[in-house]
Amino acid sequence: QMSDILYYEILDIPLPELQGLITLRVAFHQATPNEVLFHIIRLPKGSTYSDLIDDLKSKVQLSRSDAELRLFQVNNNKIWKVYLPTEKIDAVHDPNVPLHVEEIPEVEKSAGPRDRLVHVVHFFKDNQHIQYYGVPFFFLIREGEALSDIKVRIQKKFEVPDEQFLKWKFAYVAYNRPDYLQDSDIVLSRFQQKNIYGPWEQSLGLEHSDMPTKRANQNRHSFEKPVKIYN
């Protein structure tokens, strides 16, 4: 069916100039307070992620002046790719997908040679199948560190009340299959498995007792960060 309605958009900059730019949606995860700020950033085509970092630093408040930033992509509530500052944005990033940026915690700079930065995901079970939700994150696990010690740090990160945190379950997750952990387990021993296709295929999973009951709500949970949007 033909339509006689003509739609148009009022641009804030001349069209030739806009055509030479790439527009990015950036989700900046603040270290303190614990919230996510969304920014719309325009950069010339051919810019690198280092250019994006420089632009973003002028728009956000960092916890310290020498803070380093990490850029990564989230797909289906899992960390999918980490970008290098030297990579060109328009060559590797889908502009329709928000780019996540966070400060690299100071604790990571003191990591030992056998410590490991792992991906952490939130999940619940729907008819025995895993459903991921919420915002995944990176977490440094020390060599020889037991789950009991990791749980203390996770609880502090999310400020979960003791009574509620007792209901959380922790699992090593590979290829969407959870292998539940005990407090005495040395967690990094599970991440030594071979034949893993990529880092996104194994993670530390947090199964929440306050998990949503409907799939439509799988992107929300009690510990989501507040969101603000800036143009």
Rank of each mutant, 00 (worst) to 15 (best):
Lys45Leu: 11
Trp80Val: 04
His39Met: 03
Lys228Leu: 15
Val74Thr: 07
Asn76Gln: 12
Glu207Val: 02
Glu103Asn: 04
His221Leu: 07
Asn176Thr: 09
Ile40Glu: 10
Ala171Leu: 03
Gly144Leu: 08
His221Gln: 06
Arg142Leu: 15
Gln1Cys: 07
Tyr197Ala: 15
Tyr180Pro: 00
Ile5Thr: 01
Asp54Val: 15
Ile40Asp: 07
Glu106Met: 14
Pro14Gly: 11
Lys225Val: 08
His208Gln: 11
Phe124Ile: 04
Arg116Tyr: 05
Lys169Ile: 05
Leu6Lys: 10
Asp115Pro: 02
Pro85Arg: 04
Ile79Gln: 02
Gln155Tyr: 12
Arg64Ser: 13
Gln218His: 13
Arg25Thr: 03
Val227Trp: 15
Ile79Trp: 14
Gln131His: 04
Thr32Asn: 02
Tyr133Cys: 01
Tyr180Ser: 00
Leu206Asp: 03
Val101Arg: 13
Asp90His: 03
His93Gly: 01
Glu143Ala: 14
Ala146Met: 03
Val121Asn: 09
Trp200Gln: 07
Glu17Ser: 14
Ile53Arg: 08
Tyr197Gly: 13
Ile104Tyr: 08
Glu224Leu: 12
Ala146Asp: 01
Ala111Leu: 03
Arg25Phe: 02
Arg70Ser: 11
Pro212Lys: 00
Pro33Gly: 01
Leu188Gly: 02
Tyr7Asp: 09
His39Glu: 08
Glu35Phe: 12
Lys57Gly: 08
Phe170Met: 10
Glu87Phe: 09
Thr86Gly: 03
Glu108Ile: 08
Ile130Ala: 02
Lys167Ala: 13
Val74Phe: 12
Gln155Ala: 09
Trp80Arg: 06
Val97Asp: 13
Gln155Val: 14
Lys225Trp: 14
Ser65Pro: 01
Tyr83Lys: 02
Ala27Thr: 02
Glu106Gln: 11
Phe158Asp: 09
Val120Arg: 00
Ala171Tyr: 03
Pro105Gln: 01
Asp51Arg: 01
Asn231Lys: 10
Ile154Gln: 06
Asn195Ser: 13
Gln164Cys: 06
Lys157Arg: 10
Asp149Leu: 14
Gln128Glu: 13
Gly144Lys: 06
Lys57Pro: 06
Gly205Asn: 05
Glu143Ile: 07
Leu52His: 04
Pro14Phe: 14
Asp94Leu: 03
Lys214Asn: 07
Pro16Cys: 02
Phe165Leu: 00
Ser203Thr: 13
Leu99Thr: 01
Gln192Trp: 09
Ile229Leu: 09
Lys157His: 09
Glu17Gly: 10
Val36Ser: 04
Tyr180Ala: 00
His119Trp: 06
Ser110Arg: 14
Leu24Ser: 11
Asp115Cys: 07
Asn219Ile: 14
Phe137Asp: 03
Gln61His: 11
Arg64Cys: 13
Lys125Asn: 09
Val120Tyr: 00
His129Arg: 05
Val107Thr: 11
Arg114Ser: 12
Phe137Leu: 11
Asp51Glu: 12
His29Val: 09
Ala27Gly: 01
Arg114Gln: 10
Lys109Thr: 12
Ile196Cys: 07
Val160Leu: 07
Phe223Pro: 08
His208Ile: 10
Arg116Lys: 07
Phe28Gly: 00
Ile22Asp: 08
Lys125His: 09
Ser50Lys: 05
Lys194Ser: 06
Glu224Pro: 00
Val92Lys: 13
His93Glu: 07
Arg153Thr: 07
Gln182Ser: 08
Asp149Ala: 14
Asn176Phe: 11
Lys225His: 13
Asp90Met: 11
Leu71Thr: 06
Ser50Arg: 11
Phe223Lys: 10
Gly112Leu: 05
Thr48Tyr: 03
Asn217Thr: 08
Val118Met: 04
